[in-house]
């Protein structure tokens, strides 16, 4: 069995054991962590593979969340239909945003996604008839199926964990696919990929839409977790939080974003119990970790264990793929 498979087993085991050992609050924290891990994965897919730093990945979560709140609460559509439509609408939004951003690079991409994100945020705030404005839309609930209340923290956990693991596995395969490789190639040598006969814009566009969809899935869980949809998750603060988590954990790796989110949430929970100045403490920790580990926690761990275990394998700096 390969090491990669061992890791996956270990993670899955930890995720299975967590709700059995922990109290309700810890389980709801894990739910939040997984939701934000998806958002951070959505960010990292673009940042790590394409060098595209997006400030609108949480916007996709927001679009999907609002779709659910509006269709589910205002129009009372059934749960599976609402979720399907939410993902569909997120995909349509991602296609539109993707067409607008596909030709941009680094800073202009960042600015474009910032502008798009702020536009949607403003829309959610001001289109009161549809979105409920600042107050948002309350009462977003999942149904009870055959006596099982999907809103129950632990039942919800099972849903979130299944989907999150499935998405991480899919992205893991994607990172190891020729497409994943092509994205890296585009980041490092776009012109060359074109000369090699690869459809650069199409690949970037597809990556953008896929990342948007992952954000959309995060939004589905986010809105059901909160029970209310308001403009706040679409704000710049949340986008920057996700960026911070991804950078802290290491956006170039598959698990870095999840690690970053877990660490950040654990820090917030822990520190805020002891002091009101928790934002300062967390800021300081972030500052230090980014100064000391600019490539993120995951890569630091990776280097550390590589040096300890297999010094001869230290030629590659990345972890894509195994030897055939």
């Amino acid at each position: 069995m390969k090491r990669e498979h061992l890791i996956i087993l270990a993670i899955v085991a930890a995720l299975v054991v967590w709700p059995l050992l922990m109290g309700n609050y810890a389980v709801s924290q894990a739910n939040r962590a997984m939701i934000y891990a998806l958002a951070a994965l959505s960010f990292s897919l673009l940042a790590g593979r394409l060098g595209w730093f997006s400030l609108c990945q949480t916007t996709f979560a927001g679009i999907s969340g609002y779709t659910i709140a509006i269709l589910g609460v205002r129009y009372g559509l059934p749960f599976p239909l609402v979720v399907t439509l939410a993902l569909l609408f997120t995909a349509v939004s991602a296609v539109i945003f993707g067409l607008l951003t596909v030709r941009s690079r680094q800073v202009s991409f960042l600015m474009l996604t910032l502008a798009l994100g702020q536009m949607v945020w403003a829309l959610s705030f001001q289109w009161v008839d549809i979105t409920g404005g600042y107050n948002g839309i309350a009462g977003v609930r999942m149904p009870v199926y055959g006596g099982v209340d999907l809103n129950d923290t632990r039942v919800f956990y099972i849903l979130v964990v299944t989907v999150t693991v499935a998405i991480f596995l899919a992205v893991w395969r994607l990172y190891r696919s020729p497409f994943g490789l092509l994205l890296l190639g585009i980041q490092e040598n776009e012109q060359r990929m074109r000369a090699l006969g690869h459809p650069v814009y199409l690949a970037r566009f597809i990556a953008f839409v896929l990342a948007g969809m992952i954000g959309g899935v995060a939004g589905v869980f986010l809105v059901y977790d909160m029970g209310i949809m308001s403009p706040s998750p679409l704000g710049l603060g949340h986008a920057v939080w996700v960026l911070t988590a991804a950078v802290l954990g290491g956006y170039r790796t598959l698990l870095g974003p999840a690690l970053g989110v877990a660490v950040l949430i654990a820090l917030e929970t822990l520190v805020s119990q002891y002091t009101d100045r928790h934002m300062m403490v967390i800021g300081l920790v972030l500052l230090l970790s980014i100064l000391l580990m600019p490539r993120g926690l995951a890569e630091v761990f990776e280097q550390y264990f590589k040096r300890k275990s297999k010094p001869q394998a230290s030629v590659t700096t990345t972890t894509r793929g195994e030897e055939p």
């Binding site: 395969r173 994607l174 190891r176 696919s177 020729p178 497409f179 994943g180 490789l181 092509l182 190639g185 990929m193 090699l196 006969g197 690869h198 459809p199 199409l202 690949a203 597809i206 894509r320 793929g321």
Partner: peptide
């Protein structure tokens, strides 16, 4: 991995197969 990127055919490469 670089060699795996050779021979683009104008279409999107697989998102699922290993490179």
């Amino acid at each position: 991995e670089n060699l795996a990127l050779a021979r683009g055919n104008g279409r999107l490469p697989s998102l699922w197969q290993p490179w």
